[in-house]
Design a protein around this nucleic acid. Sequence first.
RNA 1: GAGUCGGUAGCUCAGUCGGUAGAGCAACGCCCUUUUAAGGCGUGGGUCCUGGGUUCGAGUCCCAGCCGACUCACCA
Length: 505
Amino acid sequence: MSEERSVADIRLEKVRRMRELGHDPYGVERFERSHAVKSVLDEFEALEGQGVRLSGRLHSMRQMGKASFAHLSDGEEKVQLYFRKDDLGEVGWELSELLDIGDHVGVEGEMFRTKTGEKSVHVRRVVPMSKALQVLPLGKEKEGHHWYGLSDVETRYRHRHLDLICNPEARKRLLDRMRLTAAVRRFFDDLGYLEVETPMLQIEAGGAAARAFVTHYNAYDMDVKLRISLELYLKRLICGDLPKVYEIGRVFRNEGVSNRHSPEFTMLEFYEAYANLEDMMTRVEDLFRTVSMAVFGSTEVAIGDRRLDFARPWHRVHLLEEVERHTGLTPHDLSSLETAVVEARRLGVEDLATKAGGHIDLAKEKNLGGFIEKLLEVFVEPTLQDPTFVIGYPIETSPLAKKVPGDPSMTRRFEGYVVGREICNAFSEINDPVDQRARFEQQVAERARGDDEAHPMDEEFLFALECGMPPTGGCGIGIDRLAMILTGADHIRETILFPTMKPEH
RNA sequence: GAGUCGGUAGCUCAGUCGGUAGAGCAACGCCCUUUUAAGGCGUGGGUCCUGGGUUCGAGUCCCAGCCGACUCACCA
């Protein structure tokens, strides 16, 4: 017995047999189809009895003597194929008998309905175009139930092609994400923005508070870092009198992973000269409306158990007012870390945080700005279900944003929230080189005190500012998270084709 | 980084008290010219994640490690 033959051996034998019959599946270079599968189903009434040419992958097979049935998928829809020995001739029939689930084929035949009413192709010619040497997790299904599939998430991420073949929901979500990116591009192109590309390898990675990946540049024998944001180079282009620029690109942050964090993720940043914070809000509102229309065909999107309508303007609230509303801490209480901690103790903020499902340890708070953002995160964020802009962020955590006139502790910065999740970060950019230098110096001092995520000094950027930058509004949006929210994904990896994974062994 | 849970056939999973490794789908052979979870008869298939240990005997118990999931911490 030859029971030790592997599936691959058996299928390679079938390839040899096909070649003996005069057809080399791997020799085929092209096959011109007349229709997409979806269109032969949609236009069936007009096509019934007409010849069609289709191509795709076999998802199921039912052989029954001198006839057989199969389902062909072109990635979008599936249609049934009907093979009959009498109609295919000896060679054609034998070729069809050598087919397996997973093979790519082209077929020629006419549309008809079977006894049970299924729209099908009565195949007159079959052209095998590649053989699946591996067993694919495909097979039988009926009315939503299926007797195959790939649910192990590790396998789905490591072998994403199998996920794309077998799991229509995963496939749709990933495709939606790609269409979303395309819609974002179209949005900015239509507004007259210029799409640019800036360096990924940098001597010092700046523009955000994060740890960078380090790699080595052999030619210059020096270590370089992978970018953690797009910000500083894009603003240097604003300084170069490119008044509207955007970039969609990968940034890298050497930090922990979670369902909302991937070490490499796709950032959108856009900058517009002579525009301010309020203009950026308008841009974000327009962007969400346009993108949801382009991807989902509606400005109304169901997210979890909520229906959001991006046709409506977003709520606008002020950070300190919201914090006061939820904690009782007044702007005056929050004028210094010391008084803030005293007042927070008096109000029992730690217990309130626990009740709200968060955690605050007053003894651990190091600076006022960080504490305020912590309060925002624990008490305010969960309440921001409808699209909302939170305006006015503390200066310590906003080293690239203009100060609020008359209030040197606050900046002209906002973040946008949807279903309690932060989705964008924007500000009126600092264009005063003296102010910017002072902010960097503050950051460098933080770094010296052990904060390895503080911004480094960037003399090149400062030089550009010194040459004159117009007033500018800027905004950053994490594309993966945007896709997560809009497609209802519970893990960021569901929106990334090939998420970072440790090697299997 | 910490805690909890998981890893058994190509896929989805079961495996009792420690006693010969199981099912469905997929695969292979035969029959079957409108089936659709096609059907009938038959067959093969395992590094039970890895390495140690306990035991007459380990998929099962113990220890260590690897990979993953979830929760938490940092971050967007």
